[in-house]
Every structure is written in C-alpha cells, then in structure tokens.
Design a protein around this nucleic acid. Structure first.
Lengths: 211, 211
DNA sequence: AGCTAACCGGACGGGGGCGTCCGTTAATGT
DNA sequence: ACATTAACGGACGCCCCCGTCCGGTTAGCT
C-alpha cells in the first residue's frame, strides 16, 4: 500500500529523510496539515527540492509521518475489542482516541480526510470503524451502551473533538479528556434518555466502493 | 463601540454597502471567516477599493455582518433565563445556540475570537456567559444539572460543536442537533456520574469582575 | 586517490491575496 | 442644466507559497 522505503539511499539522503519526517511530525502536530512545505524543509534544515524529491506531495509525507499514530489507533481499537467487558473497552477506545487526536492536530485532519484527495488512511479507518461497531454491538447487548447509539455518533464525537483548540498541547489534552468523559456519560444507557434527533449522513465513512 | 453608521452616504454607496454585507453574510456562513476580502467584493459586484473603503478591516465587516446573529444570541439567553424551569431554559439555550452556530460557520469563529485581534464581541459574549452561569446555578439548585458542571464545559461544548463540518448546511444542522441532545444528556444530573477529569483553562473567556 | 553518479539547495517563474493610489463616473443640489 | 464632489473600480507593488530546474558538492566504490 505505501511505497516501499527505498533500500539504496545514500547515507546523507537517508539522514535528511529522517530529519524531514521528524520536522513534519512536529509541525503537523502543532500547526496542522496546512503548514507550508517550505516550513517543514526549513525546520529540517534542507532545501525545498530535497523535500519534494523524497515526498512529491504533502499527502505522501503525511502518510509516512503518521504511521506511528495509525499504528496506535489500531492498537487502541484492538485493545478495546479484546477487553472482557465491552462497555469498559468501548470507554477505553473513546478516551484513548480522544487523547491521541488531541495530541496531534494534523493527524485528525489526515484521519478525517476532509481534504481534496483523501489520504489513503481509508482502509485503516474502515477497519477501526468496523471494530468499534462490533464493540458497540456487544456493549449494547450488555445493556451499558444506549440502544439508539449509531456509529455516526462516534464520528460526530471525533469531529467535535477536533474542534477543541487551545494554546498549549497540555490544555488541549486536558480539555479533550474531560470532553471524552462527558461523551461517555452521554452514550451510557440510562432509564431516562429522551429520544435523540435523527442522524444525518455525515461523511462517506462507510467502506463503500464509491469513487 | 462600533463605528456609527454614516448618515450621509450617497444612495449608490448605501446600496453597495448593503450588497457587501449580504455577500459577506453569505460567504462567512458557508466558507468561514477566512474567505478572501476580494471574494466578498466580487460576489457583491464591487471593486476591492469600495469594500476596503466601507470596511477597512475584516473584523469591522464581520462585526457589522453578524449583528443579527449577535442579537439572536442575546435573545436566546434571555429567553432561557426567563423560563420558569431553569433546567428547561438551560436545555433550550444549548439547543438553540448549537443550531445558531451550526448555521453560520463564520459566526462561531467570530464569537470564539480565536483570532489575532479579538472582534469586540467580548462584551456580548461576557453577557451571554454571565447569564448562562446564572441559569446553570439555578438548574443545579433544582437538581437537574450535574453539580460538577462548570462554565468552561459550555465553552468546551461550543468549541466541539464548531468541529462539526459537513457538506451541506442541512446536514450540519441535523448533526448539531443530535450533538446538542447528547451534550444535554451528558450535563444532566445523574445518580451515577463518575467524577469528571479536571478542567483546563480554555480561553481568556472569563468575565472580569463578575462571579 | 580519483571517479562518478547520487544528492543537494539556491534560484526562478507562476499564482494569489493583501491594502492603496488615482483617473474616471455619476449622484446631488441649486 | 451644470458644477461639484462623493464614490467607484482597475491597476499597482508587496509578500508568501508553490513546484521545478540546474550547476555545484560529496558519498561510496575501486
């Protein structure tokens, strides 16, 4: 899926590549995906040409830079799925996902892929969503998750979490943590929940053959 | 506060001014505050100079363009405050506020004033926040609002609501409506709410003297 | 050491947004 | 009807970002 890491790069080239990725990770996290490519190049101490040579497009750079986060994302849903208590697992997924996304502004944008041409995180996202759907199903059966919960609510929650922007990362994480707790409270089954307004189709999030 | 509306504008000038405001309202709502000034001018059918002559800065334009929303915002909190049942009033405020913000992407940005130099909505915002604080106090006393609710939670909710972005306005409003319902569920007092993570200071939103 | 190819980054032309200047147009009052 | 003057908008110079080309540099191999 992702292009093979070129095996026979010269040592300086490989070094530059790493520095570029480090810079990209740092800047994407703090500034979001919209940082100018040149800013990344400058921060990495290389020329623009070098950056474009290794990563012709920002999407390729982002895809490469966010593999760690993508792995973490997968680990989170797997952990939640493996938890003996589905409701506990569900809560864990929400908490950790919110924190993960709060830590990197750019990752959320990439994951959401609200961008012109979607980064090919689609497969990973579909996997995560499917897993969570399964988890939600179990949590409903256990009577802890409200029955009218739908998967779109989780996407709604993710989109909402993205809106939380503060000055420092620490403040953002703290705010996101509290937000997650509130969301969990909202999702919890309760004898007295009034009916929810209907969902609207949000994003082409379903693993469809669209295109 | 806001510059006086120039009394002695020539008729064509006044006409242009109105068209500019209409265009600004439309574009701010759909595209957000970041639309180029020239785009607004083009959409209004005037030259850039005319736009800049009437509204030297984007903030002034936004301030003028969003007076309706601002008025609506004030009306909402007043209505909520006047409601005999404080919890019912609180819910109304949340629902209507979410919808109002869902309808205009730009208004939220202006209201939040996350921007370089804050638009002088600060006074209005402070008024709204103070009113809601009072309302929340009553709702807590009535035992319907969870006791650990703080005003920052509402700001958190607004920020989160801003994150909801969809293709159409209708979808955004629908999503926002459901979001509001979930938030209300989260805020409702419940025998079984686990303690919330601590809040982090979010924005310099705190009204200076009051409280 | 010396060669060669891989690699580097400064520089270029294009595009777009910004705020302002100034020559032209037309609304207004007599 | 006509002078006056407010008002208009095209055009200018500035800055920033984009993606690419090309002459100089250096790693790596013999």
């Amino acid at each position: 899926m992702t292009d093979r890491l070129p095996h026979h790069l010269r040592s300086d080239a490989l070094d530059n590549r790493d520095r570029i990725l480090d810079a990209a990770r740092a800047l994407f996290a703090t500034e979001g995906l919209k940082v100018p490519m040149r800013e990344i190049a400058r921060h990495a101490g290389v020329g623009p040409a070098t950056l474009y040579r290794r990563f012709p497009t920002k999407q390729m750079l982002a895809t490469e830079a966010f593999t760690d986060e993508m792995r973490a994302c997968r680990a989170i849903v797997d952990e939640g799925l493996a938890h003996p208590d589905p409701w506990r697992g569900f809560r864990l997924v929400i908490e950790k996902t919110c924190e993960l996304h709060a830590r990197s502004r750019g990752f959320t944008e990439a994951f959401m892929a609200t961008f012109p041409n979607a980064i090919d995180f689609v497969a990973e996202r579909a996997y995560a969503l499917n897993s969570i759907a399964e988890l939600a199903h179990r949590a409903k059966d256990a009577g802890h998750l409200r029955p009218d919960f739908v998967l779109d609510d989780l996407i709604l929650m993710l989109m909402a979490n993205r809106g939380i922007q503060t000055t420092s990362e620490a403040a953002r994480v703290a705010a996101s943590r509290r937000f997650a707790a509130l969301v969990i409270q909202a999702f919890q089954a309760s004898p007295q929940h009034s009916p929810l307004p209907p969902v609207a189709r949000l994003a082409p999030a379903a693993p469809r053959k669209a295109r």
